[in-house]
Computed example of a mutant assay.
Amino acid sequence: MAASSSRLAILALSLTYALYFGQLGVINPYLGVFLDGRGFTSAEIGELFAVITLARIIGPSLWAGVADRSGKILFILRLGSALTVLSFIGVFWAYSFWTLTLVMGLMMMFWTAVLPQLEVLTLQTIEGDSKRYGRIRLWGSIGFIVLTVIVGKALDFFSTDAPIYASMLVLIGLFISSLALTQPQNTVSKASASLRIMPFLRDRVALLFLLSNGLLQLSFGAYYGFFALYMRDLGYSGMQTGLLIALGVVVEVGIFLVAQRLIARFGVWRLMVFCLLATGARWLALGTLADIFWLVFFSQFIHALSFGLNHSTSMHFIHHYFPPQIQGRIQAAYVSLAFGLGGAIGNYVSGRLWDQGTGATLTFAVAAACATVGGLVLLLVSPRQMAGKVDIPAAKA
C-alpha cells in the first residue's frame, strides 16, 4: 500500500472509531436520562436496556459469519451503518415502552455489524502492528470523551431529548465515514470459511475467559444504566457528570498507549485478574461514598483498568490464542456473550434493584461482587495456559 493511500486509510479508520465510540459516549451514559425524561421507571429502564442489549448476542455472530464466509467485510460494515441510521429515526416517534424497545433493539442489531468488522479491517490494514492499532483505537476514546462532555453540557440547557438528537447526527457521520474506508486484498480462504468455532469455544481456557468477561460486563449494568441519574440525584450537574465520565475515558486513553508494554511485562492472566478485582473495588466505592466528589473523581481512574486495559488484554488474548482464520467470529462471540448476554443480565438486574435510586448502594454492591467473582474465576486457569495457543485438532475438521 502506498504511503499516501496508507495515511488516508489510517485517517478514515481513526475517524470511524471516533464516531463509533462517540455514539457510545452518548448512549451509554445518557440513555437512562433520556428514558427517565420520557417517564419510564427505573425497572422499565433496566428492562429496556436488557432487551436492546440482547441484540448484541445475536447480531455480532450473525454479521461476522456472513463477513467471514463472503469476505465482504467493508460491505457489511457500511450496510450495518446505513441500517442503524434508518432504524434509529423511529426513536423520535416512539413513546411507548415496546415501541421504543423495538426501535432501539433494531438499531442495536444493525449497529453490532460495525465494530467486529472495523476491528478486523483495521488489523488487516496495519498487518497486525499492535502499536499502530493502539494509535488508531485511541481516536475511539477521544470521540467518546468529546461527545460525553458535549452532551453532558447540553443537558444543562436543553431537554432530556438532547442525547437522541446528538446520536442521530453521530450515526449519520458514522455512515459517511464508512464510505471513505477501503478494504485490503481479500484474505479469506475456503479453509477459513469452513473452520467451525464451536470446538474452540468449548475449550476450558476460552470458556473461563468468556465467563470472566461476562461477569465484568454484568457488573457494568449499574454504571451504564444509572450512573448519570445517580449523579443527578446526588446534586451533580450535567457538566460535572459529563466530565467525570470523560475522565474515565481520558485515563483509558493513557492505558491504551502503554497496554502492550504492560502485557509484555506482566502477562494476560495477571492483568485480567487485577483489572477485575480493581473494578470490584470501584463499584463498592461508588455505591457507598459517591456523595464525596473526590472519591468519585479518583474512582473514575479505575476505568483505565475496568475497560481500557482489560479490553486490550482480551484482544491480545484472542489474537494470540485462536487461529487467525476464525478471529472475526471469535471476536463476535466475545461481544455476544460478554457484552451481550452479560450486559443484558446486568442491565435487567440493576433496573430491578435500583428502585428509583433508593437501591443504589445494593445495586453497586452486587456489581462489585460480580466483578470480584469474575477475577476469582481466572484462578481456575494458569498464567501459562492463557499465554499459549488453543490446540483442538477436531476443530479443524
Rank of each mutant, 00 (worst) to 15 (best):
L35H: 00
V377T: 12
L247I: 10
S4C: 01
S167V: 09
L62I: 10
L211G: 02
G280K: 01
L257N: 09
I345R: 07
G351E: 09
G357F: 04
F175V: 08
L234K: 11
S96C: 04
V335W: 08
I73A: 00
K153L: 13
G375R: 10
A246Y: 08
Y230C: 00
D156T: 10
V149E: 05
F322R: 02
K131L: 11
T101L: 05
L341I: 01
T361M: 09
A2Q: 09
D156H: 03
L201S: 06
A162Q: 08
F144V: 12
V51T: 13
A50P: 13
A278F: 09
A344W: 07
L337H: 01
W139H: 04
R69V: 08
I345D: 01
M1R: 02
G71I: 12
V149S: 05
L210W: 00
V373T: 14
F200S: 08
F293K: 12
S237F: 06
K153M: 08
D391A: 11
T313W: 10
T112W: 00
M108W: 00
V205A: 06
S130M: 02
E127F: 02
A333W: 11
L123K: 09
I392V: 15
T182M: 00
L181Y: 04
I27C: 01
S189P: 07
F49A: 12
V373L: 15
V85S: 05
L115K: 10
L244A: 09
V273E: 08
S167K: 09
A278E: 03
G225W: 04
G359M: 03
F97Y: 08
G59L: 02
I76Y: 06
R329M: 07
S212Y: 13
A259V: 10
A259C: 06
R352Q: 12
Y334T: 09
M1F: 03
R352A: 03
A278I: 14
S336M: 10
I76V: 15
S130H: 05
V249I: 15
W98L: 06
D161E: 15
V258R: 11
S70T: 15
M198D: 12
R78K: 15
R196A: 15
M107A: 02
A3H: 04
